[in-house]
């Protein structure tokens, strides 16, 4: 029994991503999308928290939202994986429930 958490807010504007990371259980995955993707960039003030989460849980970012914001794979924190919309669907089906953090 595991949960897919989706977060669409930048961690520099809202506490949503931080709060989500603090409620992860083993087996849960996080998909960061829309404005949230800027939180997956390396060397930011938030990067340590993402890196720590990625050691224990799958942390993914949506490629289309990265591209729209000028980000490429080389910009990402180590351990973070890229998925496209098809991968988004796979994540939803691979977990028992989805929690869309707002």
């Amino acid at each position: 029994m595991s949960t897919l958490h989706t977060v669409n807010k930048s961690p520099f504007e809202r506490s949503t991503l931080g709060s989500c990371l603090e409620h992860l259980l083993p087996g849960d995955a996080v998909l960061i999308l829309e404005d949230g993707v800027v939180g997956a960039r390396k060397a930011t003030g938030f990067a340590d928290r993402i890196a720590a989460a990625a050691k224990n849980n799958a942390v993914c970012v949506l490629s289309e939202d990265m591209a729209a914001r000028g980000m490429s794979e080389g910009d990402l924190i180590e351990g973070v994986t890229v998925v496209d919309y098809g991968g988004f669907v796979d994540l939803v089906t691979a977990h028992d429930r989805t929690q869309a953090w707002l």
């Binding site: 949960t3 259980l25 429930r97 989805t98 869309a100």
Partner: peptide
């Protein structure tokens, strides 16, 4: 506490976030 909250979330069929 936060761990119990995480467990509560994991115990649901549907989660609606506001």
């Amino acid at each position: 506490d936060r761990a119990e909250m995480a467990a509560l979330m994991a115990d649901q069929d549907v989660i609606l976030s506001f």
